[in-house]
Design a protein around this nucleic acid. Structure first.
Lengths: 147, 147
DNA sequence: GAAGATTGACTTGTCAATCTTC
DNA sequence: GAAGATTGACAAGTCAATCTTC
């Protein structure tokens, strides 16, 4: 600890926490205000959209989300009820459930994506100099590799 | 958007999110495993400890926590029940409630602090070169000023 | 019996309404 | 009436147990 956690680095940590919290609150607000979509739902829609056939198994969906298995089940329940996604049985393996974007889900994502990307640009990206972008990439990669 | 959110900056955003999520999970686990204290409680104890007389009004406590008014009421309920803090009336203004560290709360913080600081050092700070520390400080400050 | 997903009981938070004191 | 804090109804997550299929 003596070598790694000096005053400056602790200050960087605090700023990191505050910035993250403020950014998430802001992006959530904007998305909710302009397209009435929770950020957690956006994450699911974006994942599915990236997947081939715009569908994924529950298990694979979970992989990039910060969520428990049961949490995902419940989130998909709500999104299905809202008509944004639908579940379908897997023909090859009856244990598996596929989750697919509905047309309505695709529309919702098309509406939400520009709003969200604009927010990331306005509140995060536009402040980063090229050096800072490089520092972020380098530093976060190092941390993630060790975790 | 066209000027501010290129590929690299979007990648930096994704790494920022992933790093934050992984770090919080890890720090929470370590604190819970070694001293059985939720990170959210640690934050309250640390705030109080910094305050003169180790006490703050609810309203002031709220200021640096990412939480709603009612969320704070409930968190203090639980911490009070656990014996870590106690509420006291304010002699000057009967609307105000003070929250103070108990002896047990001070002990808990003394146990938890080295664990938590060690974690921040091990999983975050030790990966930052001096340049990266400077980049973090500069970038996050810019974002926070605008939010 | 292990893998994939869901369910029941519980925890922790939010919002809007409320209560008390200024 | 506004400020400070709490409460009721509810939302969204967790863990452990369960169900079904491999």
């Amino acid at each position: 600890m003596s070598t790694s956690l000096d005053e400056q680095r602790l200050e960087a940590w605090k700023l990191f926490l505050r910035a993250h919290a403020s950014l998430m609150v802001r992006l959530e607000q904007e998305l909710e205000a302009e397209v009435e979509l929770p950020l957690t739902w956006y994450d699911v829609l974006a994942q599915l959209n990236r997947a081939p056939g715009q569908r994924l198994r529950m298990h694979d969906l979970l992989h990039d989300l910060v969520l428990s298995k049961s949490g995902l089940s419940r989130r998909i329940d709500r999104m299905e009820e809202a008509g944004l996604v639908e579940r379908a049985a897997c023909p090859q393996d009856a244990r598996v459930v596929h989750v697919a974007l509905t047309l309505q889900g695709q529309d919702a994502l098309q509406d939400a994506m520009p709003i969200h990307l604009r927010g990331i640009g306005e509140h995060f990206a536009r402040f980063l100099t090229p050096d800072e972008v490089a520092a972020f990439e380098s530093a976060f990669r190092k941390m993630l590799r060790s975790l």
